[in-house]
Design a protein around this nucleic acid. Sequence first.
RNA 1: GGCCCCAUGGUGCAACGGUCAGCACAUCACCCUUUCAAGGUGGAAAUGCGGGUUCGACUCCCGCUGGGGCUACCA
Length: 487
Amino acid sequence: MDSSSPPRVRFAPSPTGYLHVGGARTALFNWLFARNQGGTFILRIEDTDVERNRPELVEGILQGLRWLGLDWDEGPVFQSQRLALYQRAAEQLVATGAAYPCFCPPAQYAGGDAAEDSDAEPSKPIRRYPGTCRNLTAAERAEKERQGLPRAIRFRTPEEGFTEFDDAVFGRRAVANQEIEDFVLLRSTGLPTYQLGAVVDDIEMRITHVIRGADHLSNTPKQVLLYRALGATPPVFAHVPLILGPDRTRLSKRHGATSVTAYAEEGFLPEAFRNFLALLGWSPGDDTEFIRTADLIRRFSLAGVSRTNAVFDRSKLEWFNTQYLQRLPVEELAPYVAEELQRAGIWRPEWADRRREWFLQTIDLIRPRTRLLKDFTGWARAFFTDDFDYEAAAIEKFWKDERVPELLEALAARLETLPDWNHDTCELALRTLAEQRGVKAALLINAARVAIVGRAVAPPLFDTMTALGQARVVERLRRAVAAFPKS
RNA sequence: GGCCCCAUGGUGCAACGGUCAGCACAUCACCCUUUCAAGGUGGAAAUGCGGGUUCGACUCCCGCUGGGGCUACCA
């Protein structure tokens, strides 16, 4: 490869589902590499399997990428719209003898590896194309065509020798050509298989580095063969280890959420998700964990990619999210919170201008106790709307004492008359009351917290009171007294 | 079944022939405290097994075991 020209990389998902975390990580690595090298990041949709593709899923994949902040420079290019390209390549290969028409029916296989493996019988099916049509004479071929048999195109794999290539992650690879069957390039429907489509496009798009999941490692020799047959130089390959579920099997739906959209909806921050994903299968070389995106781009290198499959650890992801929730400048966090409030239908426009200061301060007050954006409309809901509930466990825990209603009533009365409303005046009023009544301040504090925000878990009480304002606090204390479960 | 890849605490990574094998998540204890977090301190916890090579192996080689991938007219 010409290392002097900027690299061109691509992410090429097939629309058979949403953008899952494995695909997202592959996309991220490609993006980081491109941004690090000043290269081009291209998006290509590999929609050549009519059976399995769902065109409507493309938009979901694009949304996932957008949410992650992985912007592409070219595309999306749809393979389904450039079929002539692959057909032309296939015919060219037939013309040069590197490929040949095959009239055999598609291989029939008995329902997956599991079924075959559990069948511990001596049944040893040779699951490889026997080469039936490889050496058809012109006459035989003409006869098959006259019969109108479906015609696929297969690659004529050399019988001898080895196919070699270098992988930026796994090193030099060499595979005996005998291990490679005459694989199909063009289906009888005229649509290309993955092997053909990917190679033709990577050549046409001048892709310099193919960064993809290690599940493609075994098929790479086929593609190297194709590059050569098409007179092209193979790109640099970099296979990245797979992401596994907690049981160390391939990550799938039964492991819970696997689509990035699900994490978006759960209240994860894109940058936290990115940081977490980057560290699955890649390391900056030292013990740094918290790496903001600009540094991720600066530090990313294929040399740091690991060869070991990684287990997706949700609790670590949550830790990253907590870190970002705590550490992001509040101005950066505010838009996400605003969006979350909008989704919950409790957003008020004044928080964007006239009351922006209050909004930012309130976010700062709440965020030390948040792990997900959802917390802002979850336990912290009462900071933004009067429409909130009292958590049963909180009532159980802090309204147990029978003196509570009377104390809260008295507190409301005192607070109502405060000429100044701030942290200290609130605290003094409450502590004075507690002392006069001979109860511990904590009793009153905890009971009041439940009354005011409906939760046992919330920010420090006097800051909360300050944020909510005098009228609201007094009103809520009285409302709580009315709601107090009488025995 | 065949071919291939991988192997450091439960998890993610560091150590790339010489450190008491380091960091982080999770976990346990304690501190802080107005609930709960965050934060702080400390603890438990790993080189899968067996052979080599070497003065010396986490590190290099071989075997085994385990896990993963590929083996489709799926990608």
